[in-house]
Design a protein around this nucleic acid. Sequence first.
RNA 1: GGGCGGUUAGCUCAGCUGGUUCAGAGCACCUGCCUUACAAGCAGGGGGUCACUGGUUCGAAUCCAGUACCGCCCACCA
Length: 883
Amino acid sequence: MKELAAKYSAAQVEDKWYQYWLDHKFFHSEPNEKEPYTIVIPPPNVTGILHMGHVLNNTLNDVLIRKARMDGKNACWVPGTDHASIATESKVVAKLKAMGISKEEIGREEFLKHAWEWKEEHGGIILQQLKKLGCSCDWDRTRFTMEPALSEAVINTFVYFYKKGWIYKGVRMVNWDPEALTAVSDDEVIHKDTKSHFYHLKYYISDGNGNPTDKYLVIATTRPETIMADAAICVNPKDERHFWLKGKKVLIPLIKREIPVIEDEYVEMDFGTGCLKVTPAHDVHDYEIGLRHNLPVLEIIDDHGKLNEKAQILVGEDRFVARKKIVKMLEEAGNLLKVEDYTSPVGYSERTDAVIEPKLSAQWFLKMETLAGMALETVESGRTQFIPEKYVNTYRHWMENARDWCISRQLWWGQRIPAYYLPDGSYVVEATPEAALKAAQAINPSIKASDLRQDEDVLDTWFSSWLWPISVFDPEKPGHPEHQPNKDLAYYYPTNDLVTGPDIIFFWVARMIMAGEEFMGKEPFSNVYFTGIVRDKMGRKMSKTLGNSPDPLVLIEKYGADAVRIGMLLCSSAGNDIFYDEAQIQQGAAFCNKIWNSYRLVKGFQVSADVQQSPAAAKAVEWFGARLSETVALVEDHYSKFRISDALMTIYRLFWDDYCSWYLEAIKPAFGSPVDPATHQATLGFFEALLKLIHPVMPFITEELWQDIAPRKEGETIMYAATPKVQAYKQEVLDNFALAMETVNGVRGVRSQRNLPPKEQLNLKIKGAFPAEMIPVVEKLCNCSVEMVSGFEGAQGVGFLVRTLEMFVALDGKVNVAEELEKARKELQYQLEFLENVRKKLSNERFVANAPAAVIENERKKEADSLSKIEILQEKIKSLETS
RNA sequence: GGGCGGUUAGCUCAGCUGGUUCAGAGCACCUGCCUUACAAGCAGGGGGUCACUGGUUCGAAUCCAGUACCGCCCACCA
């Protein structure tokens, strides 16, 4: 880099340095004697593409990893992808559908071929995109949840839990997604208030022979298409209105099937009509009532959400079409009493947005009781901390009410459940077909391999990703608690921090903790940092349909990855939603440019050993050194509390305000003059420290400049440069410089108010104890000559106060006495009130008696300062009045 | 319905165990500057009854109670 352009161009440097880092394997980690710092990536969907949520999450991860690396730890960030069974399978199904192929038609094996093809084609794109963002993942360790070793781990854990008795097969009411044709877990159902109707239907009382009498009861339902599956009408036993129904039978409208009236406390008397139609096959609560009262279960809706033959009428119609049609039929038959508008919560599938159909089916479950208890303890004991803490409450609530986990999915893309059915319907659970055959033969010696039929279902994706922090290092371990952890697992586990969104706190975070406790006897990570959801600046979620989701790669191309990273971090305090605005990225780009140009200035300095260091430069060097240390301590504190945006803002201001606006202006030689070697060296040292400080956030520009500020050898990198350490400094240095800064601000204020051109040198008179060594700094920074005086007699100009020092800018003939007087009187008025307040406090006996000494001491100082200011102001007013 | 969190400047947020001259930051805004690193810049400036009402305290943005509104999670009354 010979000449620096006036503007920083990210495009030209980012790819170059990423390749350099890759070439030198700087991201790669192997166990060694250093302290490990480990993060496992929240694996994105293998066929997904990068969105703003990923940008936020992975930027945070990368900042933590790069920081740890510079702190001298052996940092390892394990990347990888998730097979995402439902999401991926539905994409493949859609692709095949477009080709006119259905999944059932081609069968499991053929379908999986297509799925793998799809994975090969689209898989891992997102990892390439993370490289563009600058993520320093250990790519040699890239994992995929469905790669053979990790799939084996999944199967082994299934067998392990089965043999432990925690996995069982049961017929349960599950959330059926009629579009994806699979059961989904409770957590994958989103309840949305949905407008519908409340249909009031008459059910006539039977005369006992299946014929209607003229008496009837009224039920209210939102799902009239399910009446054919009714098994009973239920009323509350305490409901006097319905005592007459006791023991009666009623006829289902249209089909005239006879069903009993039963009593159950579940029915709310003041809701609807107080009569509930019980449809065990198509409603969770009804199913439970059915169990209590031994009611038959009649399923009339098939897997696709269509009515089947058992419905007798409307056979083959979609449930929503059937609803419309049956209403008409009921009306014609005289069973429809009235229709009300009604809004009720309806469950929708998270993936397909189809209305969930409660459906009875055989599913595999994992018992949660013990696992949830362990996982709750991990967090309650503080072994794993949540940031922000508020999520502990949510977590506790869930853990205390955890239901058994439905782990089977009626899909093909995923790990197939290792249960093998014998011809008689019994089954064995083993990790391999061979072992299954052996086990089956133990039951029945004549069984051949071809007699066994493996369960058709696959496992929930989370049943593989919950092993992630373990399986990425040692896939042998999960499922084999007795197995000695391999070298990697022993070294890297437990990982340190996990950065993820709160939406998967139960899906993933909780379950990783369970798996960690179960298989490792140890929590999988020490801290979980929950990011917010990225929204647009109007607060709407990013979505494809709204078109408000920018493509991160386009942004990176336009502004550079460093700018994008800063833009995301600037507005992201933990746990708060992020309101994304491109302006923030522009701010990031502006900061890159600022850094760039501050280096251009220093690089352009001519250095001459013949030049003596100016007093102003000497003071500035001393000050910035102290200021740097002070700020580094603050930054470290922010990092330790995961206040990443605060850490960034602190560095941002150190760089922009302190370094550029104050320090560089103070040491800058006059135009055309060279700078002395001491100042030059110090400045480069400071600049390097700043680059190192900001490197975790802005990896590219910092590498680019770091490589230029001194001769570097091939293989050297800022990535492994040590984070600047706090050096001892004198508080006095900071205080004195701060006083000089306030003085400069005062003079600049006068200049601005009076519209005095910057080039016009001013004369500043200071009365009071101003540190002499700061005079050159003031003179340099506001183009003035400073004169220490004992009074301002006869001088014309504008006065101002800096703390308790009176200052005066001489301005012959340019002063409006009346204005000055007005200003001074206002100031005096303020000070008098201030003094009054302070004295009120000090004269309050209880305050003096109760407040800590330091607080009282401070009040006394306020009083003294105020008094001297008042004195100065009064004098000033007097002299103005007489002039 | 149950639980949790929030409400501070136009916007996004900080303000840790009540007490520094405490009401802050960044952005946005206004004024003046193309000052030889940077106009993606420099210098200066305005702007808030800390949601509301009470309470505790010598002292409250900060603690407590209630109210209003917002958000999230859980449950789901057919």
